[in-house]
């Protein structure tokens, strides 16, 4: 009990820092891949600090509240995860959080924001099956939906769930809105949907959005780590190693691919989920 309280507090306090650093590293590595020097490592923190200080301008006041809800639900998701609670419940709260992001964007009735929000919904149906399959996979292998039991299993889940893991890594790209799946938004505002889902978020609202993304990324990396950890404390080191590799892979994919059409994304992600995760789980069921 005490352990879980400590890890929840640690998550709430440290996740923004870790998430911001991840983004800083992301920007730096991306820049190097493009033969640029890139911003300083702490640039994301400077950006957010400045955004908080700016005068608030928005299309509708309701957006702030909806974004706050997004943040709260995301923190709740991560807290439940690091407290070792039920993973299925975590994922359901996560999808509730994602709904609030959708609301925050669509409430403006701005054309670019609305198209971005609609595309975000498509992204949601693209990644959700794989997320649920991951939960089911953990349950099959470790006999429980409880995260603390999954984390203390005798063998790392990834050995029995390679397909599910691959599918999950695949849909994380969608969840993080990285190219080729940056469908609901874009890295640069000069593209056809401007900034998509974040088009109408400015100042404090954009800062809220960014911080929530940091919380989310840390949570997602936590799930990646959950595939690796077992009852042996040293496994946490290898989990960290896997997380670093996965994150680097995301940056690499982001920098080497062009945006996909949404229909192709949906087909591809469902096919990957069906083939990799589905067959993995089917085999597990057969040999059980």
């Amino acid at each position: 009990m005490r352990n879980s309280i400590i890890s929840v507090i640690a998550y709430i306090l440290l996740a923004p820092i870790a998430g911001g650093l991840l983004e800083g590293i992301d920007r730096k590595i991306s820049a190097r891949m493009q033969r640029r020097v890139g911003p300083p490592l702490l640039q994301p923190f400077y950006d957010v600090a400045k955004l908080f200080k700016k005068q608030v301008i928005s299309v509708t006041n309701a957006q702030t509240f909806l974004l706050l809800s997004y943040l709260v639900f995301m923190v709740l998701t991560g807290s439940m995860f690091f407290a070792g609670s039920d993973i299925l419940l975590c994922m359901f709260v996560l999808s509730t959080a994602a709904m609030f992001l959708y609301f925050a964007s669509t409430v403006t009735s701005s054309p670019y924001s609305t198209i971005g929000a609609s595309r975000e919904l498509i992204q949601m149906i693209a990644y959700e099956p794989a997320v649920l399959m991951a939960c089911v996979g953990f349950y099959l292998v470790d006999g429980s939906f409880e995260i603390h039991e999954i984390a203390s299993s005798p063998v790392s889940s990834i050995f029995n769930l390679p397909g599910v893991f691959a599918a999950f890594v695949f849909i994380i790209t969608i969840k993080m809105r990285k190219s080729p799946f940056d469908i609901s938004t874009s890295h640069h505002a000069h593209q056809e949907i401007v900034k998509g889902i974040t088009s109408e978020m400015g100042a404090r609202n954009l800062a809220l959005f960014t911080v929530t993304e940091w919380y989310e990324n840390v949570f997602l990396m936590g799930v990646i780590g959950l595939f690796v950890v077992n009852k042996n404390p040293y496994s946490y080191i290898s989990a960290l190693f896997v997380v670093v590799i996965v994150y680097f892979l995301e940056i690499l994919i982001d920098n080497t691919s062009a945006r996909m059409k949404q229909r192709e994304m949906l087909k591809l992600s469902w096919a990957v989920t069906l083939v990799l995760a589905g067959s993995n789980i089917w085999i597990l069921m057969l040999i059980k």
Binding site: Q55, V56, I57, S58, V59, T60, N61, T108, S109, S110, P111, Y112, S113, V194, S199, E200
Partner: peptide, 8 residues
Amino acid sequence: SNIKLAYM
């Protein structure tokens, strides 16, 4: 307060 038009 601070309500601006949507970007078009």
